[in-house]
Design a protein around this nucleic acid. Structure first.
Lengths: 263, 263
DNA sequence: ACTGTTTTATTGTCGGACATAAAAACAAAA
DNA sequence: TTTTGTTTTTATGTCCGACAATAAAACAGT
C-alpha cells in the first residue's frame, strides 16, 4: 500500500494523490479562494463531518497525507484541525491519529458550527429541536427583558422595527435589523449566558430564513408580531411579553415547517 | 524601541525579553508541564482574557514577540490563537494584529470556556445568570424527558442515583454519577441542542461544586431531590417533573449563594 | 484638501527537520 | 501458554527559517 490512490478518502473528490496530476478543480485552493486557508479548510472539514462523510469514531488520514491531498502545508492543515478540536468535533493524539468525536460532544450551539449545519440542509428533526429550544428560552428572555430593559435598548429595538418595516426580510438590511432587534432584546435581559445562547440560535435561524425566502416569497409580515413583543417589553408587562414572544416563535416555526414540507 | 524589556506585556510576569536570561520559572513550559503546548497556552491566554488581563479591543503583542516571551515556537503559539479564535475570543488580521473581541461575541457556553471561567472565581452576577438559565431550561427539559424517556435511560438514571447515594458528592465517583444522571436525562429529552446546552452548563456547575465542597462540607443530601425528579420522569408526569426539577435547581442555587456569601 | 501610490508591519503560508508519545510487535521468562 | 518487559513503528507535537499576502499607514502628486 505504498502509493495507491487512497480513493475518496477525503470526500467529495477533493483529494488527490501525490502522483495524480489532474488539471484543476481537485486542488483545495482553487475551489475556495475565499478567506484564510485554515479557516476555509476547517469549514470544509466541519461540513463534511456534519454531513456524515466522516463518521464519529472514524480516524481521518494522517497529517502529511491530508495536507498533500488538499495541497496545503501541514501547518495550515494542523491549524484547521485545532479549530475543529476547539469545537469538540475532533480529537487528536500521537500515534493514534485524529478521530471524529461522538456527536454528543460536538458544540452544536457554537455559532460557526450552527452556520455550517445550515449549509447542509439539516434534518427536520434538528430544526424542530432548535425551535423547541427557542420556544423554551426566548419567551423567558422576553419576560426578563420586560423587567430589566432600559431606554437605550428600547430605542434600538424601535429603530430596528422601523427598518424591518420598510425593508422587509428580503433584503440584507432587513435581516440585519431583525438580528439587531433580537440582539437588543437579549442585551435587555441582563443575562450574558442567555444572550449568548439566543444570539447563536437566532443568527442560525436568520441564516435559514435567507434560504427559506428563496423558496417562497415572504408569506407573512413579521413586523406586527415583533412590535407586539416590543410594546409588551416597553410597558414592562413580563407575562404578556412572554406570551407574545411564544406566539412569534410559533409562527416562525409554522412558516419554517411549511417551507420544509413543500420543498 | 528595539530590544526594550516590554514590561509585563503578557501578564503575570510570564514573559521574558529575548535578552533576559533569568534562570527558570519565567519560561512557560516549566510552569505548565501538563498536556500539549498549544492547549496549555490557549488555556492560559483564555483565562487571562476572562480575567480581564487582556481587555476587549486590546491587540496583543505580535506573534514573534509573544512566542519568544512564552519561549515556544511561533507555530505552537499560532495554534493556541486558532483555538481562542474558534471560541470567538480573539480575531487576527494581517497588519492589524490579533485583538481581543468584544465580550458579547465570546462563546461563553463553550464547555472549555466555561471551565476556564470557573477557574477564576467568576462574579456573582455571572453565576446568578447561569442559574437563571438553568431555571429556564432544565425544568422544561425534565418535562420533555418525562414524555419521551425510554427504559434504558431510566435504568441509567436509577443506577446513577444509587451511586450518588452511596458515594455522596464529596467523591469523584459521586460527582461523575451526578453528571451521568443529568446526561441521561438530557438524552431522554430527544433534543440534541437542548442536551448540548445543558451538558455544558451542568459540567460547569459540577466544576463549581467541587470548589463549593471545599469550603463547607456537604450541607444537604442531593439524592432525594434527584430521586423525586426521577420518579416523576418514570411515571411520565411532565408537569410534576418540571416542578421537581425547578425546585432542585432552586435548592442548588440557594446552596451556591450561601457558600458564596460566607466566602 | 483630496487622491492615488508606495512603504511597512503583521499575519498567513510553506517546507523540512527533529522530539515525543503511545500503540503494536516482539522477545524473554514464568 | 501466558505474562511481562523491551523494541520498533507511526502518528502527532514542536521547532526553525523563509517568503507571500494583506491592509494600514505614510507619502507623494495633483
Amino acid at each position: 500500500m505504498d502509493d495507491s490512490p487512497k480513493e475518496g478518502a477525503l470526500g467529495d473528490g477533493l483529494n488527490r494523490s501525490a502522483l495524480d496530476t489532474s488539471p484543476l478543480d481537485t486542488a483545495f485552493k482553487n475551489l475556495t479562494p475565499q478567506g484564510r486557508l485554515h479557516g476555509a479548510l476547517a469549514h470544509r472539514l466541519g461540513v463534511n463531518i456534519l454531513k456524515g462523510v466522516f463518521a464519529p469514531g472514524q480516524t481521518l488520514p494522517n497529517e502529511v497525507e491530508s495536507s498533500q491531498a488538499f495541497d496545503i502545508s501541514r501547518s495550515a492543515y494542523r491549524e484547521a484541525i485545532r479549530i475543529l478540536a476547539a469545537k469538540g468535533m475532533v480529537e487528536s493524539r500521537p500515534k493514534t491519529g485524529t478521530r471524529v468525536t461522538e456527536k454528543r460532544r460536538w458544540n452544536i450551539l457554537d455559532p460557526e458550527v450552527l452556520r455550517w449545519m445550515f449549509e447542509t440542509e439539516p434534518t427536520e428533526a434538528f430544526i424542530l429541536g432548535l425551535f423547541e429550544l427557542r420556544l423554551i428560552t426566548e419567551p423567558a428572555a422576553a419576560a426578563l427583558a420586560a423587567q430589566r430593559r432600559n431606554d437605550e435598548q428600547l430605542r434600538i429595538m424601535d429603530e430596528a422595527l422601523i427598518i424591518m418595516d420598510s425593508e422587509t426580510l428580503a433584503t440584507e438590511a432587513g435581516r440585519q435589523a431583525d438580528l439587531d432587534f433580537h440582539d437588543a432584546l437579549m442585551q435587555a435581559t441582563g443575562n450574558e449566558t442567555l444572550a449568548s445562547l439566543s444570539s447563536s440560535i437566532s443568527a442560525a435561524v436568520a441564516w435559514s430564513t435567507r434560504y427559506k425566502q428563496r423558496i417562497k416569497a415572504l408569506e407573512r409580515d413579521p413586523v406586527p408580531d415583533h412590535r407586539a413583543v416590543y410594546e409588551a417589553i416597553r410597558r414592562g408587562d413580563a407575562s404578556d411579553a412572554r406570551w407574545c414572544m411564544e406566539s412569534l416563535v410559533r409562527l416562525a416555526l409554522h412558516d419554517t415547517q411549511r417551507s420544509m414540507s413543500l420543498k
